[in-house]
């Protein structure tokens, strides 16, 4: 999966950091989202999807990539 964040839309609710601290962090000066990795490992996929669903500002997108068989 590929993760995209929009720092302009972010309202610093912290929902994504609570859901997946391995993938999301917050800027020191204003709590705005910082993406730690664009391509999180598979075992974090559900948590990242939850982060995107919980984001109140809809500032997180997940692009699902087809698995290679």
């Amino acid at each position: 999966m590929k993760v995209i964040v929009d720092q302009n839309k972010c309202v610093a609710s912290g929902q994504c950091v609570l859901a997946t601290p391995e993938v999301f962090d917050q800027r020191e000066e204003d709590g705005i989202v910082v993406l730690l990795t664009e391509t999180p490992p598979e075992h974090l996929a559900d948590d990242v999807r939850q982060a995107a669903a919980l984001c109140p500002a809809q500032a997180i997108w997940v692009e699902e990539q087809e698995k290679k068989e």
């Binding site: 610093a12 912290g14 950091v17 917050q26 020191e28 204003d30 709590g31 705005i32």
Partner: peptide, 17 residues
């Protein structure tokens, strides 16, 4: 809203809390 909210958000960031 965003301008003013962002002046208060740092204190409520997960790590800070």
């Amino acid at each position: 809203h965003a301008r003013l909210r962002r002046m208060a958000t740092a204190a409520f960031a997960i790590k800070h809390v």
